[in-house]
């Protein structure tokens, strides 16, 4: 059994219209990889084909999400059903449609449920990236498409994950970009992925642990483990203070 958040359809039914344009969070192309070596071999296939796709340059900000909420008031925190967004949803905002002093427009939006993130992306004519797409993009450093074997790079990621989230989040796009021109995949907030829930099924879990076959590649890549742990601790209506998102799109059709 592969549980999925099928209720997603119901959530989307809350919305209506066509995409709203966002000018300053463009979708940048991420080159595909026909043999992406997943760090979760045994849970998912060892090497997968990840087609090229587009990813937003930075995590969606408070300001961007505010525009969305104004256009789609059914996603205001005072009207959204708890089934789609828990009690802390957008709790950092002063009012349901006002940021106030505690939430800066350029800070990444957090306390966002999976449903809300998905709805935002759909409204843009986009979607959440899949686990593999996100991991493929996140494997890049400033200079390499796949920096996962670089101990210094791994240590830098770990240092961020190890710090508590209590401090104020900095605005987006304040650090360096990676090879794709993307900002903030690692050192700002966690990010939702489309298939967060289906990372592993219970059957596979049983098989995996029971056989004792520890097939996690790059065992020392603790950051991936932490992302698995984080996403798997959440229900789709859950929110946390350090979890945000950004949207993805397929590459434009080239006529094949």
């Amino acid at each position: 059994m592969k549980p999925r958040w099928i209720d997603r359809g119901a959530a989307l039914a809350l919305m209506c219209c066509a995409a709203t344009a966002v000018a300053d969070n463009p979708y940048l192309p991420v080159e595909g990889n026909p043999h992406f070596q997943s760090a979760l071999q045994g849970v998912k296939p060892a090497a997968v084909t990840v087609r090229g796709f587009q990813l937003q340059r930075h995590p969606v900000t408070n300001g961007e999400f505010l525009s969305f909420v104004k256009a789609y008031p059914e996603w205001r925190r005072d009207v959204v059903p708890p089934l789609f967004a828990g009690a802390d949803y957008l709790g950092q905002w002063l009012a349901p449609a006002e940021l106030g002093a505690t939430a800066q427009p350029q800070q990444p939006v957090t306390r966002i449920s999976w449903f809300a993130a998905e709805a935002y992306c759909e409204a843009e004519g986009a979607r959440l990236p899949t686990w593999y797409e996100w991991e493929l993009a996140a494997a890049a450093s400033r200079t390499e498409r796949d920096a996962r074997a670089d101990p210094a790079w791994r240590q830098a990621l770990l240092d961020w994950y190890a710090r508590p989230a209590g401090k104020d989040l900095r605005p987006v796009e304040q650090s360096a970009t990676d090879v794709y021109g993307l900002f903030d995949l690692h050192d700002l907030v966690w990010e939702w992925v489309q298939d967060a829930n289906s990372l592993m099924s219970s059957d596979e879990a049983q098989k995996f642990c029971g056989s004792g076959a520890l097939s996690l590649q790059q065992k020392e890549n603790f950051a991936v483990l932490m992302r698995v742990a984080m996403l798997s601790s959440l229900k789709p209506n859950d929110t946390t203070r350090s979890l945000g998102f950004r949207c993805a799109k397929d590459l434009p059709a080239t006529g094949q």
Partner: peptide
């Protein structure tokens, strides 16, 4: 399948 995922 939260729990099984946690264990895994």
């Amino acid at each position: 399948t939260r729990s099984s995922m946690a264990v895994l």
